[in-house]
């Protein structure tokens, strides 16, 4: 049905592609007119993801060290974090709300708990993967515990740890959208608004941005890893 809107002087105006009458999935005008919505949602998305991952790493690292030091605790730590993982995210937020309220904290804590499972496992796997010979020769060379950890073990464990961080990052970006339940879902807020108002351009733009953000962060981590482990790609001198 072609629609023209008649204004006072009789000039017809074409409705924009994101108006209710046209409602296209892809709409350049929407991207232009509402880019403030998109950038602020993207900013919130990034903020939530970053805090969740930071908190996740901050908790996972000591846990992984503890699990390695005390093999008896290993099963308990891995088992407990897996149990948290089975709780659906949408079900986890309600448990947190009585303590943290409807704030960004609720989402960040929930997502950090999810990232925790993946991070603890990969960190532990990385640390346990350091060959005993290497560790022993470092001790023989007079390395103390701290220096051994930071100079020898961590660099060697880095590839496995980074692989875990990549999985955790990509899934955290995707899961952040669910935070819209407590109104802190970054791009998820736009998606929910789009569903409620049948606003197609908004849904598609937010969804695509979400995937792009996940892929971009993944690429950033790969880049950081490349820079942090120069020995893996340095030309071999014969």
């Amino acid at each position: 049905m072609p629609v023209t809107l008649l204004v006072g002087d009789g000039i017809s105006i074409q409705p924009s592609c994101y108006s209710r009458l046209v409602n296209k999935w892809y709409c350049n005008d929407y991207l232009k007119d509402r880019h403030h919505d998109l950038t602020s949602a993207l900013g919130q998305h990034l903020e939530i993801t970053a805090w969740s991952l930071l908190l996740g790493v901050a908790i996972a690292f000591p846990l992984a060290l503890l699990a390695r030091r005390l093999p008896r605790l290993q099963g308990l730590i891995v088992g407990a974090s897996t149990m948290i993982y089975t709780i659906p995210s949408l079900a986890l937020f309600p448990f947190l709300v009585p303590f943290t309220g409807l704030s960004m904290k609720t989402v960040v804590i929930g997502l950090a708990l999810y990232a925790l499972t993946i991070l603890v496992r990969s960190m532990l796997a990385g640390l346990l993967g350091v060959p005993d010979e290497v560790r022993e020769s470092a001790i023989g060379l007079g390395y103390g515990r701290t220096r051994l950890l930071f100079r020898i073990e961590l660099p060697l464990a880095l590839p496995v740890m980074m692989a875990g961080l990549r999985v955790a990052t990509v899934s955290t970006v995707a899961l952040t959208t669910v935070g819209t339940l407590v109104s802190y879902g970054g791009l998820g807020n736009l998606i929910r608004d789009g569903v409620q108002n049948d606003f197609k351009a908004e849904i598609l733009a937010a969804s695509v941005l979400c995937v792009v953000l996940a892929v971009a962060l993944d690429a950033v981590i790969v880049g950081c890893q490349w820079l942090a482990t120069p020995w893996t790609h340095r030309r071999r001198v014969t």
Partner: peptide, 18 residues
């Protein structure tokens, strides 16, 4: 698997429903 991880199910649901 890698692509599947990056696409939020919520976004997919939203598109299908609309």
């Amino acid at each position: 698997t890698n692509i599947g991880r990056a696409v939020p199910t919520f976004a997919l649901l939203a598109i299908l429903v609309t």
